[in-house]
Design a protein around this nucleic acid. Structure first.
Length: 585
RNA sequence: GGUGGCGUAGUUCAGUUGGUUAGAAUGCCGGCCUGUCACGCCGGAGGUCGCGAGUUCGAGUCUCGUCGUCACCGCCA
């Protein structure tokens, strides 16, 4: 038996018990004739004590030990003469009578403590050491707890957890696929699923009625702090439901998780049309923890001989509360910020609403106090506020104002990680025009149903068709999304036609699905949550890497196992593959 | 594919206008210490300034290239 107790469980009640503990050496404090060892495992830290006068042999053993050695120790629990109120085991210590080194340890490249001295890449390379640290381990414990909460909620609602295949086939829509060569079928490839989309729809055709899965998905696209090449979704589908039924069910799931895991009650989720999100927040994933809404002041500001505004398609503004005192330096910094290529604005106009009721703007030459007063009324600005104005083409400026809004909120500390504001964004456009390829793409995916009242627009004005699609957004993060699906073979065929597929192409790519719809498909709808993002939000982390046990870096590499890696020629040969690497410029 | 930040001791970082022998903290090693718990005190070791070219009398510092890493845009539900 390696241990009778863990390093986190002994208390004052255990005094005079003979115990055996196993764990890692956190730290040794050598006071001369007396030494203390902090022994750590996942449950906590227990102090071991050795007195050189009474235990000379054991004291000598301490010289051999170092940080992160794995020990098995035996001894008697006793009350400390000076207690540590900061840790749960702080009232007791173990007077050792035996130390056994189970495993020696080299000096770790960074110290295993809550505030580590290790940088990100070093921590990634030695991820198994990083995982010994409390904050990282706690994130993964949280993740396990959340997965458990998902299962208990959905199981109680009669959802059937079903696995779907990982080796499937590549399809032209959506993200780039990861592909896997098939040895038994020379020249052919599997693809890893971007999501189990078609399979869950087929499960509905199969009459499963309610399906879910916590499942890995794969997308071969460039990475971000919130994007990994393999990531986890809570994937769900339901039959005989309308949009409202799905939103209620998954609002319930979300609220259940907040309550179970964080003990947080969240309010009912408002529904916001996509068009409103874009116009008021400049984003399809609005952060509603704060207002600072975008105002369209195009009509108000035109016609005063300010050529920049007069020639602009759109002029929009936000009001930053209490920022009238911003200095020239701060305003210049903001201007430079919006002029960066990532935002791409031409400039920034400001209006300071002074405490005395007067206005000071960067366009005083063109606008009177009376004019500026109108701006203030329209943007809801009061004395002490700062109005920030941008002009240009509508789509681009809404986007830029949305980014500026978030930046100002950051500067003003309005994005509190402990406040959660969920909402549903609904009525997304069904199709999106792509200039490069001169064709429509499905904004969600090709199986999304148009709103019934918009179906007639499919032939006349496809870009105007709204979809029965919805996103769950919390604090400006897209947590999940889904849609009511097409369940009629004819309508599905029409969709493929609008997306530029010939009937033959549609048949070759998705014939199995349209075929299935001919055998009695129930109306159905579904949703998928980005599990990693949800966990990182609950954990208060900025990147999903912090809630994944073994994540990949920015370039899609696992620096611990050093993957991806070349394979042997024999392997390539077996797969009938030859490399033709392109020269780097 | 693009824009920007970073790369200096095991680690986290500082390093002035380009100027003598590149510093701090922490960790590590040695010594002392019986109530520590981020123990304390004394001493010591530890550097290809990512790599390569260039400018210069002189480069950690400036320029170009390259590699790595991070953030973002494009891309991606």
């Amino acid at each position: 038996m390696y241990r009778t107790h863990t390093c986190g469980e002994l208390r004052i009640d255990h005094v005079n018990t003979e115990v055996t503990l196993s764990g890692w050496v956190q730290r040794i404090r050598d006071l001369g004739a007396m030494s203390f060892i902090d022994l750590r495992d996942r449950y906590g830290i227990t102090q071991l004590v050795v007195d050189e006068n009474t235990d000379k042999a054991i004291a000598d053993q301490l010289d051999e030990l170092g940080r992160e050695f794995v020990l098995q120790v035996k001894g008697l629990v006793r009350e400390r003469s000076s207690k540590n109120k900061n840790i749960p085991t702080g009232e007791i210590e173990i007077a050792l009578n035996e130390i056994k080194v189970l495993s020696a340890a080299e000096l770790p490249p960074f110290t295993i403590q809550d505030d580590t001295d290790g940088g990100d890449d070093l921590r990634m390379k030695y991820r198994y050491l990083d995982l010994r640290r409390n904050p990282v381990r706690e994130n993964l414990v949280l993740r396990a707890k959340m997965a458990h909460a998902v299962r208990s909620y959905l199981n109680a609602k009669d959802f059937i957890e079903t696995e779907t295949p990982v080796l499937i086939k590549s399809t032209p829509e959506g993200a780039r696929d990861f592909v896997v060569p098939s040895r038994m079928n020379p020249g052919e490839f599997y693809a890893l699923p971007q999501s189990p989309q078609t399979f869950k729809q087929l499960l509905m055709v199969a009459g499963f009625d309610r399906y879910y899965q916590i499942v890995k998905c794969f997308r071969d696209e460039d990475l971000r702090a919130d994007r990994q090449p393999e990531f986890t979704q809570i994937d769900c589908e339901m039959s005989f439901v309308e949009q409202k039924d799905v939103l209620e069910m998954f609002e319930g799931l979300t609220r259940h998780m907040f309550k179970e895991v964080l003990d947080v009650e969240v309010t009912e989720f408002p529904w916001m049309p996509y068009s409103e999100a874009m116009e008021k927040y400049g984003s399809d994933k609005p952060d509603t923890r704060f207002d600072m809404l975008i105002s369209d002041i195009t009509e108000t500001v035109k016609g005063k001989d300010f050529v920049v505004f007069d020639s602009a398609e759109y002029i929009g503004a936000i009001c930053a509360k209490g920022c009238a005192e911003y200095t020239r330096k701060q305003l210049d910094a903001l201007t430079n910020w919006v002029k960066r290529p990532q935002i791409g604005a031409k400039g920034l106009v400001y209006v300071k609403c002074n405490a005395d009721g007067t206005f000071k703007s960067s366009v005083d030459k063109f606008y009177s106090e009376e004019d500026l007063k109108l701006w203030a009324e329209q943007t809801g600005a009061e004395a002490g506020d700062l109005i920030l104005v941008m002009s240009g083409d509508r789509k681009h400026m809404l986007d830029a104002l949305g980014e500026l809004r978030l930046e100002m909120a950051n500067q003003l500390g309005l994005r509190d990680k402990n406040v959660f504001k969920p909402l549903w964004v609904v009525d997304f456009p069904l199709l999106e025009w792509d200039e490069d390829s001169q064709r429509f793409y499905a904004m969600h995916h090709p199986f999304t149903a148009p709103k019934p009242e918009d179906i007639s627009l499919l032939d006349t004005d496809p870009g105007k068709v709204r979809a029965n699609a919805y996103d769950l957004v919390i604090n400006g993060v897209e947590i999940g999304g889904g849609s009511v699906r097409i369940f009629n073979a004819d309508l599905q065929a029409k969709m493929f036609d609008k997306l530029g597929f010939t009937p033959e192409e549609a048949e070759a790519q998705f014939g199995f699905l349209m075929n299935a719809f001919k055998f009695g498909a129930p109306p159905h709808a579904g949703i998928a949550f980005g599990f990693d993002r949800l966990v990182s939000m609950f954990a208060g982390e900025d990147t999903i890497r912090d809630v994944i046990a073994f994540p990949k870096n920015n370039s899609g590499r696992d620096v611990m196992i050093d993957s991806p890696a070349p394979i042997a020629n024999a392997q390539l040969d077996e797969l009938n593959l030859k490399l033709d690497l392109k020269e780097k410029k």
